[in-house]
Amino acid sequence: MGVLLEIQNLSKAFTLHNLGRHIKACQNIDLSLQSGEFVGITGKSGSGKSTILKLVWRSYLPQTGSVFYESSEFGRLDLNQASERTILHLRRYELGYVSQFLNVIPRTTARRLVEQAWMEHGGAPNQAPVEAERMLGHFDLDRELWDSYPNTFSGGEKLRLNIARTMVKRPRLLLLDEPTASLDQGSKEKVRILLDRLKQEGTTMLGIFHDLEFMQGLCDREYQMAQGALGASYGQ
């Protein structure tokens, strides 16, 4: 146990050159996650919750603040200051990011995508087929879909494939970007079971969700976000 992620005074604004404007996305965020904890953030669209996740993943560059992460490879480091190379290394070996969106080379089967993820993370190529089947089965992707191309998958199926190809790398910290948005009630329930299983397995997770209801009983702590600021937590 111990602190895995510690966000301090994090702020982000976007400069839109064509409009000559700055847009504030989030301000003075403080948040920390213990190892093994599941923290959820909810809030309206545009409240800045995705921004936090993307700042941790470093798709966004922050203006001020720090994101300290306890890396198994490098020790405690500030993700905001880390080199691009370090970030790529961490993404490959320690961090996972899951959404319903897939960005993959067309005409690559679901099975192959999980195999590739396994090998990218340094897994033995001869183990890849076994691992891929194990993960696809574990995360309940319909067996008929394993050898088809995922660009025609439904949102829920893409999500499960994304979880499979992220979890095959056993990340220490999993970032969940609205995994339940636009899913029907049945699919949401499946995701909930799946996340609960990940939590039982000890994965540390930071997730953003549309609805408060979904997080209840699942997350250890919940935050509400409004206008770029993080509200009080409702722990359990």
């Binding site: 050159h17 064509n18 993307k54 993943w57 470093r58 798709s59 966004y60 691009e84």
Partner: peptide, 21 residues
């Protein structure tokens, strides 16, 4: 220059913003 997803999602330079748009 930067991580590819950062260039695409949070471009800093005016020209890059135009390009991404």
């Amino acid at each position: 220059s930067g991580l590819t997803d950062q260039i695409l999602e949070d471009p800093q330079d005016p020209y890059t913003q135009d390009l991404v748009h």
